[in-house]
Amino acid sequence: MTTTTTTEVIASSSGSWRAVRAFFRNPAAVLATAFLVFVTIVALTAPLIYPEDPLSMVARPFLWPGQNPKFLLGSDSLGRDVAAGLVWGSRISLVIGIAAMALGVTIGIVVGATAGYFGGRIDDALVRLVEIFQTTPSFLMLVVLVAIAEPRVESITVGIALVTWPTIARLVRAEFRSLREKDFVTAARGLGYGHLRIIFIEILPNALPPIIVTSSVIVASAILMESALSFMGLGDPNRISWGSMIGASRETLRTAWYLTAIPGIAIVLTVLALNMIGDALNDALNPRLSGER
């Protein structure tokens, strides 16, 4: 033990560093992360790139991409700048994707941890609740929820969170059910730890890897759901989003296909990047694949 070198000490300092290194050794993960960083920067700087309202009519309708250097990606049927729409639309997609994921994961962890840790009747009741949500077609429920509430960013976020939390809850419940039987949990009880302390300090960190992996996929599906809602005209009418751009252009699909293709490509690339990150995280955090722990 005394011959341990400094490099070994640094390497040992944390298991999470090893996971980070494993993650960035994966070229697909690096590419996907770079793309998402790019999208995030674009979303954050949208007011600087296109200070004008992206919903305002600024050009002749149906400008094809490259036709007018002022409007790089052309204009739509109402003469709105497609590039501005794309940039501003990324804000809605990311905000809704991340906020819905955060809310859904929080609800899922609370419900799943409670059910899995305590078991018994609490578990039975919560599993029934999860099953009610899971047996209802989730997109249909989302449409109903958003239709009942006013279609705004907040209501759409809450709606998406409400249809995604059961996935996380089931996952967390399964993890907690196996982890609560571990010796270190018994040891923690033997030290006089209360339930909250055991759930959040002892068990939850052990259950995090699959939750993190699933979260990245949930961001992707939340973006898809928001796009689908906007496509159907159930999005926030005062905000432009990729889905609403596709929805608004579907009638001119044959004459001006670029109007649906451009936001479509943006959605595909973002969702693909998030799924690739999910896969890479799965490989990096999986203890069986990474040997240690």
């Binding site: 298991g15 571990k182 010796d183 270190f184 018994t186 040891a187 923690a188 033997g190 300090i201 002892e202 960190p205 052990n206 995090l208 722990r293």
Partner: peptide
């Protein structure tokens, strides 16, 4: 109380 299995009685992620 201390337990029989020191290998599994410590939390692996802390």
């Amino acid at each position: 109380m201390i337990f029989q299995e020191p290998m599994t009685s410590l939390n692996p992620v802390l």
